[in-house]
Computed example of a mutant assay.
Amino acid sequence: MSCLSLQLGLLLAASALSPIAAQAQEICAADLNGNGDAADPGETASCLATQSGTWQCPLQQALCTVTVTGTYACPLGDQFACEVPASGGEPTCSPNPCQDAAATPIVEEPPISDPGVPADGAVDANGNCTANIEIFSGRAMRCRPPGLLDTFQNCCKDKGKIVKDGMGSSIGSIGTKIAVAKAVFTGMKAAFTAFKAGATAGEAAGAGAHAMIAGIDPTSIAISLAVNFIFEVLLAGCDQEDMETGMLRGSGMCHEVGTYCTASVLGICIQKARGHCCFNTKLGRIIQEQGRPQLKVFNTVGWGTPKAPYCRGFTPEEFQALDFSKMDLSEYYADIEARTQGQLQIDMKDRIDAYMQAIGK
């Protein structure tokens, strides 16, 4: 059984701790489902004080039994001590010991923080691009499913299509779509910065939404969904990259590469993350998914690893070599066909409302 201890405050970051609980520096964790880590809900718990001044893990806790000699014995094994809870009651035991939190530091992987390929590279005197050209390039990103460090909230939860892909002539150019992706990043950063500075979740959400629509066509962002999304993830303990990935993921712009461990103690994973390649458009993600198998250069590296997704775009030569007749673009066509006249009218209303919000009227 894998066990470890951590700072109690990490587990209860959003809760008001009592004076007794605030002194508790031990928790325990156990791989209850046998998958090799303790990152799933219910596999980490704060240790409970006992009348003898020790701590006991509540995971797999059992009542002690009375022996023929009148003493207590742990049904899980004699090696586990029977202790009376500090609150009173029958003696209990647990197979999962608590350890000193100060002696078990958390080893945490930082966010991926991939800025992606700059939209504008260096040019020569004649205006020719001197940098490498990448078509439908993406960014390596991650979001965290429920775990200890995000207070068991799902920071990868889809909240609907917030970033709109393909709004007619108003967002027809690649440059504008890149601007939309940049706006998402700017908005998430603004919201997270405001929240850390003491703003309420609502105020931070408003700041993030305002930053997202500043300088771009506001109809490319579903403002009401964006505000609700930012508000929810801030209260859930998600960080800036969680927020950005979740928004793009829910909008169909991300390819999930896989899951990896992003935080551990004593070699035991306590928090997982999902690595993605996220693109400026949903169409870009679809073409990447169906174009890569056609090119030998991607055969060995594929999408990289969950911890280090490989998200580069196609070179002009690679893009010209793609056979679009072998691609299934029905997912993208379905989105276009589903746009009824009523939805187009709603988009126009969103355009007007968002613009009025942007100018403060």
Rank of each mutant, 00 (worst) to 15 (best):
I20T: 13
M348T: 05
A338K: 10
P145E: 01
D323T: 09
V107M: 04
F185V: 05
I174M: 04
P316H: 07
F314M: 08
I216R: 01
E317G: 05
A194N: 00
V227M: 07
A62S: 15
P218E: 03
A38G: 06
F136Y: 15
Y333G: 00
G187S: 04
E83M: 14
P75R: 12
Q99R: 12
P110A: 10
G206M: 03
G275P: 02
F229N: 08
N132V: 11
T67K: 13
A204F: 04
G202L: 04
G198F: 07
E289G: 07
V107L: 10
A263G: 05
C143M: 04
H210I: 01
R339K: 13
S2V: 12
L48E: 15
A125F: 13
S18N: 09
G34M: 06
L32D: 05
E203C: 00
D114P: 06
C311M: 02
Q343E: 11
G36P: 03
K196D: 05
P91I: 13
G202M: 00
R351V: 01
F229R: 09
D328S: 08
D335G: 15
A179L: 04
D350L: 12
T65Q: 15
G252T: 11
D114R: 10
A24R: 14
L322N: 09
T69H: 12
A125I: 08
L12Y: 12
A21G: 04
A13H: 12
A62C: 12
V107Y: 01
C82Q: 13
T305P: 01
A190T: 10
G215H: 07
D78W: 07
D353N: 09
Y333A: 09
A21R: 10
L76K: 13
C156S: 02
T200C: 00
E232A: 13
T44G: 06
A122H: 11
T315C: 06
E337I: 11
A49D: 08
G53W: 15
G275A: 08
R274W: 04
T219K: 10
L266N: 14
E134Q: 13
A273L: 03
T65S: 15
T281N: 04
D242C: 06
L283P: 02
W303M: 09
N228F: 08
F279H: 14
Y310M: 05
